[in-house]
Design a binder for these strands. Structure first.
Length: 328
DNA sequence: AGTGGCTCCTGGCGGC
DNA sequence: TGCCGCCAGGAGCCAC
């Protein structure tokens, strides 16, 4: 699952080759990937030069420069967009344009799709000849074309960037204050902290020695300090290992990350804790599989009231695809 | 306002 | 062997 470290890995890889290239065409093979019609999308970005690549949470932002004299003639644009933040492509102008991509579950931005791979949902053709394919088996990923002036509104609901100065211990404590939601659900909420997903939430809570079922508001100052450090350390470790290739994540060059090789709890149900040897347990919190060590992450401090407990559903305990019991 | 649950989507897996 | 149903998960939406 692409989370902050995976998207950052993609960004860094693309940064070595995309800036300076000019968008020659955008081919949309799956119209559901974008809220605007392919023609509007194309009209807004073709002829623009890639001037930068940024990341906001799990979103990848491709900065495009203003259209120049070489920009192709455009048909009338500005078709009203469906409900949602992204407006339709605007007319050629002296301002830039943003292409925003979210990989969601299985999205991959790659230069050369493997033979036999499903058709790319969209392809950005660049000048000089380069093609960036968006492959996405589960088709959850999305693409937006934004006017720079709409960027703030687009990301308005998103919490602070973990590596920004805004995300300090006081910020984390303020965000947790009074919240009855389990810590795990809190960490997954992009309105609180941007970029943390299921893998890194489990790993950060293990590193902080905090039980994922604890109500976020029950975390004390010393624990908040541990959690803050654990979030940053876990995400940084993910970046250093170029992401986790647990399901389908590969970077644009087709390389896999290696963070999955040092996971402490995620998808290690029933395996011994690397610290104390206790079997790792799995529960469902906020609809997400959650893994923790019951000894290193004790349940003191108050359990959130509405967590569904794990229970085998059949006589022998039904198992899911990863060998963990399913939930009630 | 805060929270949980449903929905989308598809490959992989277990059960029959 | 083949079919069926469940499960995984990010984020938007809705109900409570």
């Amino acid at each position: 699952m692409p989370e902050l470290p995976e998207v950052e890995t993609v960004r860094r890889r693309l940064l070595t080759c995309l800036p300076g290239l000019i968008v020659r065409d955008v081919r949309v093979n799956d119209p559901t990937v974008c809220d605007v019609a392919a023609e509007d999308l194309r009209g807004g970005v073709v002829g623009r030069r890639v001037v930068g690549l940024r990341r906001r949470g799990k979103y990848l932002v491709i900065d495009l420069g203003p259209t120049g004299a070489a920009a192709p003639a455009g048909r009338p644009r500005g078709t009203p967009s469906p409900a949602g933040p992204p407006p339709a492509a605007g007319p050629p102008s002296s301002t830039g344009r943003l292409l925003v991509v979210h990989l969601r579950m299985t999205g991959q931005l790659i230069f050369r799709p493997q033979a036999g791979a499903p058709p790319s949902r969209f392809v950005i053709a660049m000048e000089p000849a380069t093609e960036l394919h968006f492959s996405d088996v589960r088709r959850f990923g999305r693409l937006w074309s934004l006017d720079p002036g709409d960027e703030d509104a687009f990301f308005a609901a998103m919490g602070p960037e973990p590596f920004s100065a805004a995300f300090d211990i006081a910020c984390l404590r303020a965000a947790m204050a009074g919240r009855r939601a389990p810590l795990k659900a809190f960490l997954l909420d992009q309105r609180r902290i941007a970029g943390v997903g299921n893998i890194y939430a489990d790993e950060a809570l293990f590193r902080a020695r905090l039980n994922p079922l604890r109500a976020a508001g029950s975390v004390g100052p010393r624990e908040a300090r541990r959690l803050h450090a654990a979030i940053l350390e876990t995400l940084q470790a993910g970046i250093d290992h170029e992401g986790s290739s647990i399901e389908s994540f590969i970077d644009p060059a087709g390389a896999r990350g290696s963070f999955q090789e040092i996971l402490n709890v995620y998808q290690r149900t029933s395996e011994p804790c690397r610290v104390c040897g206790t079997a790792i347990e799995r529960v469902v919190v906020g609809g997400r599989g959650t893994h923790y060590c019951p000894r290193c992450q004790p349940r003191r401090g108050g359990i959130a009231p509405t967590v569904r407990r794990l229970r085998p559903t059949g006589p022998a305990g039904k198992r899911d695809a990863r060998g963990t019991p399913s939930v009630m």
